[in-house]
Design a binder for these strands. Sequence first.
DNA 1: GATATTAAATTGGTATGACCACTTTACTAC
DNA 2: GTAGTAAAGTGGTCATACCAATTTAATATC
Lengths: 235, 235
Amino acid sequence: MTTLFKPIRPKKLSEEIVEQIKSLITGGQLKPGEKIPSEREMAALLGVSRPSVREAIMVLETMGLLESRQGGGTYVRSLTDGTLAPLAAMLEDNPELLKELLEVRMGMECWAAYLAAKRASEAEIKEIGSSVEEMARQAQSGGWSSEVDSRFHYAITTATHNTMQLHVLNTIHGLFLATIEVALTKLYSQPRYIEVLLGQHRAIYEAIAARDGDRARRAMAEHLEWVQATLPQLA
Amino acid sequence: MTTLFKPIRPKKLSEEIVEQIKSLITGGQLKPGEKIPSEREMAALLGVSRPSVREAIMVLETMGLLESRQGGGTYVRSLTDGTLAPLAAMLEDNPELLKELLEVRMGMECWAAYLAAKRASEAEIKEIGSSVEEMARQAQSGGWSSEVDSRFHYAITTATHNTMQLHVLNTIHGLFLATIEVALTKLYSQPRYIEVLLGQHRAIYEAIAARDGDRARRAMAEHLEWVQATLPQLA
DNA sequence: GATATTAAATTGGTATGACCACTTTACTAC
DNA sequence: GTAGTAAAGTGGTCATACCAATTTAATATC
């Protein structure tokens, strides 16, 4: 009968801080890529000392949830960065798998567009629209950065209201960027491509704004199929 | 060519301390149950500050290697089958997150069914059919194992001819099994569920055999939506 | 107005010293 | 030998300071 009872050990402050931050991440309030408040600010917010906050952050880094950069801040990692890490090694050894990764991403982005069309709030639809407008603006100056394109896809995935979808897509997107950022930069800077891409992004945005899931899915599929066909010409 | 070079980040002191203590544990110099030197003593031995030692010990506790007791010292833990990976543990603690992962999986399995319908070879279609037949056979003896169900989904994903899809889905499936195997086993052993599942699996198989991608996708969506609705009743 | 350079501010990393709370050990009285 | 108490040792938390890396803001130049 003694196995029913376990010794009760009071929780350390750092453990409580870990639980709070974990909750914010899994609940979607802290999203992958986001920067969390600085250690000093967090200590003030929580009413604890900076070493206690540091201990909690160290634990969360060990779990793979956070990543600190000296002088630069602390950022939320994608939950699946660790479990999908073998994919990065596979990509390094076999660059031809990139095409397959693009196809995996295609499936997920199409699913995300579908869900976003079903679920996006007005604010989220507005944010998707803003990122397209920002692309249009940068297009007039010769092209846009891969960051703006990421923002567009990120906004769509955020509108699915599925935290895990966001984390998994972030991990895959990170693998993607790591291998082909040069080709993407070319893609986003050549006038003939820019015009096509902008039209495709607008079509996706409009389908989501119209809350038409199947149309959003098809628009996203068309976009990514075109990207898949075009990238080999830039490698 | 940029992918060959990775940013070099200098190691934190606490990381170096972690490596040293891990080496002593895995090398047998520190045995389970043994008490390690006190924080103050360790700091003096290593020529570092006590907070740096504390951070390292905190990390080793998170890894399950050490255990601290206030006033009592820090001890090496037994290296049993150990802790779950952080993400799996979080999924266990958080049913909402598990539900979201199920939805991510849904998107991917539907995509896989679509691609499989487009690409499966005759042998692959045959293997998918065989796994359905094996389910039917085991159903007559009261139910089938989660392994047979895995084989069915694995065969479909194999038929996509996309290695990355296979790896990502396998990883997600592994996280899944770690958390809900008991509920799945119940699902595959109750007569009223078995009949529904078998019908759904047959519909998927038939759509793939007919090489009808959209039909395969819809059949898979219907199957997984049903599973998603039914699992909470078994928890 | 754009760009490059430099300075200032912010951020994480490490350290020192102090104190609190819990546990262990040593000492004393019976 | 045992019980009680004091002292020492240990982990937990904190305040403050300083260093090193990064980011941001200000300034000079074209």
